[in-house]
Design a protein around this nucleic acid. Structure first.
Length: 412
RNA sequence: GAGGAUGUAGCUCAGCAGGCAGAGCACAAGGUUGUGGCCCUUGGGGUCGCGGGUUCAAGUCCCGUCAUCCUCCCCA
């Protein structure tokens, strides 16, 4: 037998990737907080029926992508495949609606879907997401898109925004029903995947790339005929708002989203730089979901962004703090060197005590490997070496050197 | 779930008419007896993804399996 490997589709995130991960998540948190979203830390396991009732019994996610098991108490459990359902469950279960006003929550963490791994698609992946409960105003939709736009801008990531409206829950259902009826006439001419979609998600057939399906789709019912004037006006208003803030978008009537709970606004931020899995952030409104899961009628909207996909789009991420490496020139100066470096750390300066003794050359190499910006040699006196310029200054007392570092170099 | 490509040293890869496992980079020691990066010398490293088969002989051929990547699908 070979060595134990990580589970398929799972990954260790370390080194530069860990920095990328941290940058994405930390930036998202900062932005969320600017918009006054409050963090909610959600469980990774939920009752299976939560996802059946929210994401949708017929969706791929529920049908074939969930990690599920029966626990020792006989409960049917799933590792969460997405965050919105848990967030809604918590909103209802913790009776947040009882506090009055409205609620803005954000979350961050791992999601699990049993899919075929691919670039930008993993079985354990991470999302940052935000949800607004109790607001139907179109300004909430606009604000959320602005927020995501700002997040992407902060990360220096270019995407295009595609947006669509699905209308109300009723109109969406009616449209879906009409499509089902229409496409059923051509059942035998549809491709195999579309025959499956007929039951599961007829809206998707419109977007099929197979030539024969596209021909059939040309005569299919149009979504605009099923959308109420109110929804249309709402959508227009949203687009105007986006125009006003200089946000480019493309209205894509084929944009459907694979989750059942969306109503009215749906949107995706897409890139074509990372292969087939180009959706980097996506979301929309789900005005019926809270009620559907047993809560009071509550309009809501939300989005989620894929951390790994954002990571792929990031420029290289370097550590920014200066590193001071301390080398003890003799074995018996180590206590003094340790004391010295602890003082640096107390002052908020990042320090690495070179812990391998050997030739000075080998210790210097260690400092170099750590990419030290400065090296401090500790003996009966102290010397500070600038690794970039090679310049070296001698100090008779450590106090003087520490003062010098804090004064001159901490901010460099 | 379907199709395709790949898997040899820490990394990038060569080796395939089956015949002792290689290069570059990286790593370690030294050249420079208290100073890294460049250069030179020397050195340590591989059950050739894993398991089976064919063969006198398999990294090389065959079968299986695992993993990665790409497309479909799906989605963040």
């Amino acid at each position: 037998m070979g060595n134990i490997q990580k589970v398929r589709g799972f990954q260790d995130i370390y080194g530069e990737n860990a920095r990328r991960y941290r940058l994405v998540v930390d930036t998202a948190r900062e932005i969320f907080k600017l918009y006054n979203f409050k963090e909610i830390i959600l469980p990774y396991l939920e009752d299976i029926s939560l996802f059946k009732r929210s994401v949708g019994e017929e969706t791929d996610i529920v049908q074939k992508e969930m990690y599920t098991f029966t626990d020792r108490g006989g409960r049917q459990i799933a590792l969460r495949p997405e965050g919105t359902a848990s967030c809604v469950r918590a909103y209802i279960e913790e009776k947040l609606y009882g506090e009055g006003g409205y609620h803005k929550l954000f979350y961050e963490g791992a999601m699990f879907r049993y899919e075929r791994p691919q670039a930008g698609r993993y079985r354990q992946f991470h999302q940052v997401g935000a949800e607004v409960f109790g607001v139907s105003s179109v300004y909430a939709d606009a604000e959320m898109i602005l927020m995501i736009n700002n997040l992407l801008k902060s990360l220096n990531i270019q995407t295009r925004l595609e947006i669509n409206t699905l209308g109300t829950f009723e109109s969406r259902r009616n449209y879906s029903e009409a499509l089902k009826v229409y496409f059923s006439q051509f059942r035998d001419s549809l491709c195999e995947t579309c025959r499956g979609r007929l039951e599961r998600n007829p809206l998707r057939i419109i977007d099929c790339k197979v030539e024969s399906c596209r021909e059939i789709a040309k005569g299919s019912p149009v979504i605009t005929d099923y959308i109420s004037e109110e929804s249309k006006e709402r959508f227009e208003k949203l687009l105007n708002l986006l125009d006003r803030f200089g946000i480019n978008y493309r209205v894509n009537p084929g944009l459907v989203r694979g989750l059942d709970y969306y109503t009215d606004t749906v949107f995706e931020f897409i890139t074509d730089r990372i292969g087939a899995q180009g959706t980097v952030a996506a979301g929309g409104r789900y005005d019926r979901l809270v009620q559907q899961l047993g809560g009071p009628p509550t309009p809501a909207l939300g989005f989620a962004a894929g951390v790994e996909r954002l990571m792929l789009l990031l420029d290289s991420v370097q550590e920014k703090e200066k590193l001071f490496s301390v080398i003890s020139l003799t074995e018996d100066q180590f206590p003094k060197a340790l004391e010295f470096i602890e003082t640096l750390r107390k002052n908020g300066i990042k320090g690495e005590l070179v812990l391998r003794s050997g030739s000075l050359k080998s210790m210097m190499k260690v400092a170099d490997k750590f990419k030290a910006d400065f090296v401090i040699f500790v003996s009966d006196r102290c010397e500070l070496k600038d690794m970039k310029s090679g310049e070296q200054i001698t100090f008779l007392s450590d106090g003087d050197l520490i003062d010098y570092i804090i004064r001159e170099l901490k901010t460099v």
